[in-house]
Design a protein around this nucleic acid. Structure first.
Lengths: 338, 338
DNA sequence: ATGAAAGCGCTAACAA
DNA sequence: TTGTTAGCGCTTTCAT
């Protein structure tokens, strides 16, 4: 059975294909009755618009490309969920791919997105991405690019982020206020703003309160499954253990928390702990984790809204601007000493 | 700047567009030197193949459509991660959309996928989906459909699942072996095989061991955020509390576990608990949750592999067949009494 | 091994 | 308000 085309509808009704096309697309200046007839006929013939033809003609795919480090993390899947909801509502499709934290794969994915002619690109960078070259083709071709979460400062790209410096600062300040003197910061690649800025916030708070701050205070990890184990080893190598730890990831914080308790530390008594993300896991581990609430769903929604309003010409957000979402400290028992 | 097309390359080299197209696609029977020249010129001109034109002509999009209930759940994001990896490796794009557990939205999404001319559809059903009508168009048009996780038995669709009956049976049997007599089963919509089969397994074990089984033993929930609270209320309304609970979802199990402890129950002493999925949360809640390991990533990989080999004509898997992945009971402290 | 030519289905500029 | 017409860029049949 051949697919019905607008020509079939046109022939069927004795009108032109152009009129059919216009009617189907709700063009203004088309006779209401004609429109009605066309829609009926379309239904009767089981007509389905051919996106390829339309995209080829319009040079527009109604598809947004999304590149994330991983699909299956709490924050990322929340962001994607928000993105999908808004995109779907606005009639856009989402092509999603993951870099698995590898620059190599991120570059490859970007190329695929480019070839797939996505109308816009939404991207959160891999751990080790250094180059910007894979983004340049989009900019050159004026395809809007929005960075979210793990961003890069570029004059022609919008970013959607939280205030990582503030959060790093506040989490640390909170620990200090609870009486911690020797605080550890467990974080990811400084290549990425999220970790770099949180560390800057950490340092700022430490210095403000005249506490020792040096490389010794920072542990780097890739947040894989062995991360808690590795953190424990580093701690046991220290002459005096810390009395506070600020993790930039709840899952790692929770895992380490369990190991610390097993090793005989009381939490928050001996070591107070702060995590990051407000992952559901933070409300399950005992004691419940003090953490920074990360507005993932919202971030996804805003990122897509921004890019769509850009695509549709409502330039209420300038290129190169940054949207900073509200994030905040949620105090729970893992750090409450007073 | 205009995009370079195969015509530009053709003109540039004084050959025909047809030859360029063939060279670019690695057609057999093209002069090796010609091919080389073409590839060089393509690179030099910054040529990017136009997928719309190609898809329009070939009636094939190299895109797989995926519909899931939600993007942001542990199992689903794991499955999607596996799918993306394999699809990406094989040169396919993934268009992902979520039904948010609504049949209405699932139908809408299916239509979008259909119009987007996906080469195949991968779908896991919403809580309340009853109709099959939104799938029929794909079958009629011979677009392969693979169901995963929440499936539907249909002669022309492949399914990828775990043995939910077995898991329901084994989880229950385990509780019985630990001495439980009055066991509750907390589960989702019986519309869906995953819950229906687990319940059947539950019932089978209960009957096998001559324990009371009736509607009283089953609590239904949509597994939203209030689920643990609701379960607690149901329990407190009971004249005698249960001594074992089998949840078909770890997050809900963990949440309820916390509430139970707060209410003074000892776990597993008073109430033994088994969850489902082997969500990371199961290793954090105290006591650690006995659960059923769900091979999410693997399921995603297999589902996409199956569909791609189907698309490429390697029909090593028959239509209508079912792939059952290995899942298994993981015993931890939440149920260990002996 | 290569070329000529037709057409996939749609949209938009222009004309009426 | 509607129709005519010319492509969008690619693949493929048929011919050479």
């Amino acid at each position: 059975m051949k697919e019905a085309t607008i020509y079939d509808i046109a022939r069927h009704l004795g009108i032109s294909a152009a009129t059919v096309s216009r009617a189907l697309n709700g063009h203004p200046g088309i006779n209401a009755q004609t429109a009605e007839k066309v829609n009926k006929a379309a239904l009767a013939l089981g007509y389905q618009s051919n996106k390829f033809a339309s995209s080829l003609r319009k040079q527009k795919s109604n598809t947004l490309g999304v590149i994330v480090p991983r699909l299956n993390s709490y924050v990322m899947s929340s962001i994607l969920s928000g993105m999908e909801r808004v995109a779907n509502e606005s009639g856009y499709n989402l092509i999603i791919s993951q870099s698995l934290e590898l620059e190599r794969k991120e570059i490859e994915n970007a190329r695929t997105m480019f070839n797939s002619r996505v109308d816009a690109l939404l991207i959160s960078l891999a751990f080790d991405t250094e180059t910007f070259d894979h983004i340049t083709p989009f900019i050159k071709k004026k395809i809007p690019v929005v960075f979210f979460d793990r961003v890069l400062d570029h004059p022609s790209c919008t970013s959607v982020v939280i205030d990582n410096f503030k959060d790093g600062y506040e989490g640390t300040k909170h620990l200090i206020e609870q009486g911690c003197k020797k605080i550890l910061h467990v974080t990811g690649s400084l290549q990425r703003n999220v970790y770099k800025d949180r560390l800057r916030g950490f340092e700022a708070a430490m210095r403000e309160y005249h506490l020792d701050f040096s490389d010794e205070n920072v542990i780097f990890t890739s947040f894989d499954n062995d991360a808690p184990q590795n953190v424990m080893e580093k701690i046991s190598e220290m002459t005096t253990p810390p009395d506070g730890i600020f993790f930039t990831n709840d899952a790692c914080a929770a895992g380490t928390c369990i190991l610390l308790k097993k090793a005989g530390y009381s939490i928050p008594g001996d070591i107070a702990i702060v995590g990051f993300n407000n992952d559901p896991i933070s409300k399950v581990v005992e004691p419940n984790l003090t953490t920074i609430h990360y507005p993932g769903i919202e971030m996804g929604e805003i990122a897509v809204q921004t890019i769509i309003s850009h695509l549709e010409g409502n330039l209420n957000v300038n290129q190169g601007s940054t949207v900073v979402l509200r994030s905040e400290l949620v105090v729970r028992d893992s750090s409450r000493r007073i």
